[in-house]
Write a protein that binds this DNA or RNA. Sequence first.
DNA 1: AAATCCACCAACCGCGTACTG
DNA 2: GCAGTACGCGGTTGGTGGATT
Length: 281
Amino acid sequence: MVRAPCCEKMGLKKGPWTPEEDQVLVSYIQTNGHGNWRALPKLAGLLRCGKSCRLRWTNYLRPDIKRGNFTREEEDSIIQLHEMLGNRWSAIAARLPGRTDNEIKNVWHTHLKKRLKNYQPPQNSKKHSKNNLDSKAPSTSQTFNNSDNFSNIQEDINGPVTGPNSPQRSSSEMSTVTADSTAMTTITIDDQNMFKQLDEMNSSESFIPEIDESFWTNDLSTGDNSNFDMEGTGEELQVQFPFSSVKQESMDMVGTKLEDDMDFWYNVFIKSGDLLDLPEF
DNA sequence: AAATCCACCAACCGCGTACTG
DNA sequence: GCAGTACGCGGTTGGTGGATT
C-alpha cells in the first residue's frame, strides 16, 4: 500500500521555496524554535507540510550551514568516511561541520563517484566485497590520513566512549567477533581493542598493504559466495568465509592471531557497516 | 540561433524507527 | 504489547542553467 504524500493530502504547496516563505520560516523558528514540525507550518502561517519545512530548514536555512563549494579536504574526508560508513550520509555529515547530508549525498553522486571511478583499486579488493559484506560501500581502497576517523566511528557504533551519559562498556559487555573459515582459522577480538589497533595502524604510512592474488582461494575468486554466511548469535557473531585457505603468516594483534592482510580485516570490520551496526555486536 | 545533452542540486517520497498514550 | 504519530534518513526526481552539437 502506497502512502499518500502528505502535501497532496492536505492540499499544501509543493516545489521550490520562495524568499518570502524562507523569511517566514526563519523568523518563526528564530522566535519560537521548531518544536513540533507538524504543527509549525500552521502556526507560522505557511502552506507547507511540516516535513517540507524541516527539510528546508535543515538543508538550507539553518544559520550554521556552510555554503559554497566543497574543499579538496572536505571531499577527501567524504571519500574516507564513505569508505568506512557507506551511504550513511547523516553520519558523514555529522563529521563535516556546516554540511548537510543532502549536500554530501549530492556531491558524492555528482563528483566523488567519478573521482573514485578513475581510481584503480588494488587487485582483489572487490572480490571479498561481494555477498553483501560490502553492499553499502564502494570497493575501493586507499590510505587513510584522518586519525580521528576510527575513534569517531567507534563512537558511532558503541556510543560515545567517554562522557557522563555513555560509560565505557566493560570488557564483559564488549562483543566479540569470531571469524571461522573452513581452514579453521579462528580469531576472537573485541571491538574496543580492534579500533585502538586500527587507530595505530592508521597513523602509520600505509594502512592497507598490497595483497597478492594467492591470498584468495578459487571459490571466492570465481564469485561463488553462496555459502557465505554471517549471523548474529547472541553475544558472539559467527562469520564464515567461503575460502578454504588463507594466508597463514600471522601477526600478533590484540593478543590474538590475525592474518597479516589488513585489507581483509578492514573489509570485514570497517566496510561492513551492517555487520558493525548489529546491536548484538 | 536552436536543439539537445548533461551536471547540478533542491525538494520530494516512502520507509524505518522512536516516542507516546 | 499495541496502535497511532512524528521524525530522521536515504533514494529518487525534476527543474534549471551551462555546454555542446
